[in-house]
């Protein structure tokens, strides 16, 4: 009997801490601004339009499916203006949730604040204390080189920073960049990833970055 109790005590003591990497966050919808003038670069917090892919994170009541671009003026005075259409979110919320699946932080479930649906995000890299996630379907497509037809520019990377002492986690939603695709050092895809996002990832007119913060949910 004593041996059994001793074994149980040892098992409990040395068991992996399953809650250590457990994530359950409530995040404020991210504030943003639509920059209509295509000639101007996107500043931090600006997007070209609140597309369906990012509307789940944004403080918006609607999302855009169509963007119309028309130019005014001539030569150096030429200015191009983008106007997005507007589709109402079916179930808009003031915040969205992020939670891990099981005890690991490899996969996250993110609740879309526009539709109220959950979507799976997979970890694509861990750089310092920052964990980067990509929508699982997109990550699968990239991994398996089913890249044809993906508008990768619209698929955001969700980055979670380390939790601060007051329990707040800073998050970043940004457009995909290839340097964040590091599944591990020996991943053969790092070198041969055929998606070629250079044309936009270095383009300050297309690349967006939005910052926000999340709080640990009270159980």
């Amino acid at each position: 009997m004593n041996r059994i109790l001793l074994c149980l005590a040892l098992l409990v003591f040395f068991a992996p801490d399953s809650d250590a990497k457990k994530i359950d966050l409530e995040c404020d919808a991210l504030d943003y601004r639509v920059e209509s003038q295509l000639n101007l670069p996107l500043q931090e917090g600006s997007v070209r339009s609140a597309t369906y892919s990012i509307a789940g994170f944004l403080n918006a009541d609607s999302y855009a499916l169509k963007v119309t671009i028309q130019c005014e003026g001539k030569a150096e005075e030429k200015v191009c203006i983008a106007i997005s259409d507007s589709n109402y979110c079916p179930n808009p919320q003031a915040s969205f949730r992020i939670r891990s699946v099981g005890g690991s932080d490899q996969n996250l479930m993110v609740k879309n604040r526009c539709t109220g649906e959950w979507a799976k995000y997979s970890k694509i890299s861990s750089i310092g204390t920052t964990q980067n996630y990509l929508h699982d379907e997109v990550a699968f497509q990239l991994k398996n080189q089913i890249y044809s037809g993906i508008n990768i520019a619209d698929k955001p990377i969700l980055s979670l920073h380390e939790r601060s002492e007051d329990g707040v986690v800073a998050i970043k939603v940004a457009s995909f960049t290839r340097d964040l695709w590091r599944v591990n050092e020996f991943d053969p895809l790092v070198g041969i990833l055929k998606v070629n996002p250079e044309n936009y990832e270095k383009d300050e007119h297309r690349r967006f970055t939005l910052n926000g913060k999340c709080a640990q949910r009270n159980k």
Binding site: V34, E35, S36, Q37, V79, I81, A82, I83, S86
Partner: peptide
């Protein structure tokens, strides 16, 4: 043109 840009920003940022 400037008026249109301002208005486009208004249209895109208001619901």
């Amino acid at each position: 043109i400037q008026k249109k840009i301002d208005l486009a920003n208004y249209v895109n940022n208001n619901q």
